[in-house]
Design a protein around this nucleic acid. Structure first.
Lengths: 233, 233
DNA sequence: TGTGATGTAAACGTCGTACTTTTGCTGTCG
DNA sequence: CGACAGCAAAAGTACGACGTTTACATCACA
């Protein structure tokens, strides 16, 4: 109905994943493959594949004679970008945004420090470029353009850290930034202080100053958390 | 053949996942469902379900007329505990251990700081208990017992942070600690300094001192990284 | 009445086959 | 040499059958 460009499987998976992660199917509730097949008007084959994927994300558990039971949220693979997307689209976006922002506040400063040590000249150039892009789009309600630069900026930092686990968090950060921009009251232009901090971070990385990079990134994170406190209940 | 207690699906998934994540099937190589079905002597249904799961982990991509192609490692869901287990069991365990330890060094100090603020009395009690357990098992080649306390200790800290993303990293930490103990030259008893630091961390959390908790956890992380530098090339 | 063994049916697990759909490739024609 | 048409390979989907586990109810026996 919404985004079925890639086959039945994708549609059923997305629908079910969203329903489960939004709490619409509370933990403990059971789904039966036959019923699901009927409901989506697809074969049991497709349903089974979907269930297997949901199972690999620990969203559900399939047991004989019982059915497919929804697992408690504490067991979900909350680092799976798919799950993150579902949860950000669902009911408890605020809580989710806060959790993820705290995660960012832990990781990005360290990543920035490492980036200051390991960033290549090319990465430094792209970083500065993006920082300037943020400055250029920080006024005049150009939130979408600003967002693009912001995402790219943080992605470069995470990549430049040289740590694979950090690098792969780029998608998460992108989701957070996008979610923050789109689903929150953001009629205002970005905080000028944050923009300045990004410029200074690019400088610190370029100059190979890990301590400064880490400190500045912490300030950015604190600002983001504060913003969340103010705008979200 | 090895661990098929939970059905064909599990066995095929584990085997394929391990082969892919260990680089045995290099990125770009193609697998065909029919061939896999033949190779494992299972039906195409089972293979398809496995492929779907691997696809959800971004390990492979399935395209019509072309087959199931292995994706480059840069796209893998490296936060998926299953993937982590496969990679730790595979060829590049050293690199993986280092990545994960750096990740820990970023997250655990922040988590410990939060734990010092939010830990319940019961959590503090269990934490102290585990710290004492570590002391008790730190001498006399009782590595397995020590490991159990160590894992439980860090899990409690992550849980007590009150942040879901941190809490769900307990499995990762457990894998790292277990991998470090089992697959490295660890005929020696644990570093006494590390044991002391854990005791002091439990104290800091109990006394509600976030700064101390964060600082001590950083020291633990630095020690772990140093140990890795010394023991792994 | 309580407890344990037993049977049954419900749901998933697996299989085989047939058909559909997409799509890379190839070969021909202009 | 390039564009278009057709072919075939491989995944996608569907359906029906049977196997396997196991929760639950029933019944026998103490």
């Amino acid at each position: 109905m919404t985004a079925q460009s890639q086959g039945l499987h994708t549609y059923v998976l997305d629908t079910l994943g969203l329903e489960i992660s939004s709490g619409q199917c509370p933990p403990g509730s059971v789904l039966r493959t036959d019923e699901l097949a009927q409901r989506f008007d697809v074969s049991r084959t497709v349903v089974r594949e979907v269930v297997r994927v949901l199972e690999s994300m620990h969203l559900v558990e399939s047991r004989r004679r019982v059915g497919v039971t929804v697992r408690p949220a504490a067991t979900w693979n909350v680092y799976d970008p798919q799950v993150i997307r579902w949860r950000l689209a669902g009911a408890d976006r605020p809580r989710q945004l806060r959790s993820l922002t705290v995660l960012r506040s832990a990781i990005e400063p360290v990543a920035a420090g490492l980036a200051a040590r390991h960033a290549t000249a090319e990465q430094c150039a792209r970083l500065t470029e993006r920082a300037l892009g943020m400055v250029a789009t920080s006024r005049g309600r150009r939130l979408e353009d600003y967002l693009e630069h912001d995402i790219a900026f943080h992605r470069i930092v995470l990549d430049a850290s040289g740590n694979e686990m950090f690098a792969r968090l780029g998608d998460v950060v992108a989701e957070v930034l996008a979610g923050r921009t789109h689903h929150q009251v953001m009629f205002e232009d970005p905080d000028p202080a944050a923009v300045t901090l990004h410029v200074r971070l690019a400088e610190a990385v370029r100059e190979g100053d890990p301590e400064a990079a880490e400190r500045i990134t912490k300030e950015i994170a604190v600002g983001a958390l504060h913003e969340l406190d103010v705008l979200a209940p």
